[in-house]
């Protein structure tokens, strides 16, 4: 497997895998949070998943905007790739969150503003993928609009915990992490980012190859 640039993704994949495999050791060295104890360490898998999901949404939304206003098919292919990765990382966040909530809050799903908005954001990008798969001709533009809508929803989801105070901790927690917790957290964010970049590159390459196959089929049919 090689990317269009000729670079192999295996180096990035290896970095991401090694960092991710070492994450439990790094996390084990972090101190326990006072009220949550061991369960609080799910934070190191849960929050980076959302950070990377937001990064993927930013890529998808920006590429969709370029495709929508500048008619760039390559930007559209990048948007499709980013949307799929968005759904994947969103799924990680939506699964690890209830696991954490069950132990820390006593409930799997509290239906507070943050969890509900996050679920809607995930469904937004599932809708994007369904639209691309079953929407027929012209669905790329509709889907691009949906991706832009999703991107503009991100700040609302992020800031919701500050506006509507619920069970979720506010956004001040992560910037104020002590160094002993901040370093493992950063480690996990970088591991997730490395995996994200490999996934995005690989998925984009797949989309490029599919476009080439379509072009070749058209050329074959014209013969």
């Amino acid at each position: 497997m090689t990317w269009k640039t000729g670079r192999s993704p295996f180096a990035s994949l290896a970095v991401g895998t090694v960092m991710f495999a070492a994450a439990p050791v790094v996390i084990a060295m972090a101190p326990y949070e006072a009220t949550m104890g061991l369960a609080g360490k799910i934070f190191y898998f849960h929050v980076p998943a959302w950070i990377v999901m937001f990064a993927a949404i930013f890529v998808c939304g920006t590429a969709s905007g370029i495709h929508l206003f500048r008619e760039r098919p390559e930007a559209d292919r990048l948007a499709v790739a980013a949307a799929e990765v968005t759904v994947l990382f969103g799924l990680m966040g939506l699964i690890t969150g209830p696991l954490w909530g069950r132990v820390s809050w006593g409930t799997w799903w509290p239906w507070d503003v943050r969890t509900t908005l996050a679920l809607i954001l995930e469904m937004n990008f599932i809708a994007y993928l369904l639209l691309r798969k079953y929407g027929g001709p012209g669905s790329d533009k509709l889907a691009a609009g949906l991706a832009l809508f999703g991107m503009f929803n991100v700040p609302i989801v992020y800031l919701s915990v500050n506006v509507w105070r619920t069970l979720h901790p506010p956004t001040t927690v992560v910037p104020n992490l002590p160094l002993t917790m901040g370093v493992p957290f950063l480690w996990c964010v970088l591991a997730y980012l490395a995996l994200f970049l490999v996934m995005l590159g690989g998925r984009r390459q797949l989309e490029e190859q599919r476009a080439s196959v379509d072009r070749l089929w058209l050329a074959y049919d014209e013969d």
Binding site: F20, G37, L38, A39, I42, F45, I95, L99, V103
Partner: peptide, 12 residues
């Protein structure tokens, strides 16, 4: 909490 933590890591 341990099973939940292990489950979270494994699922990812």
């Amino acid at each position: 909490a341990a099973p939940f933590l292990i489950a979270a890591y494994s699922i990812v």
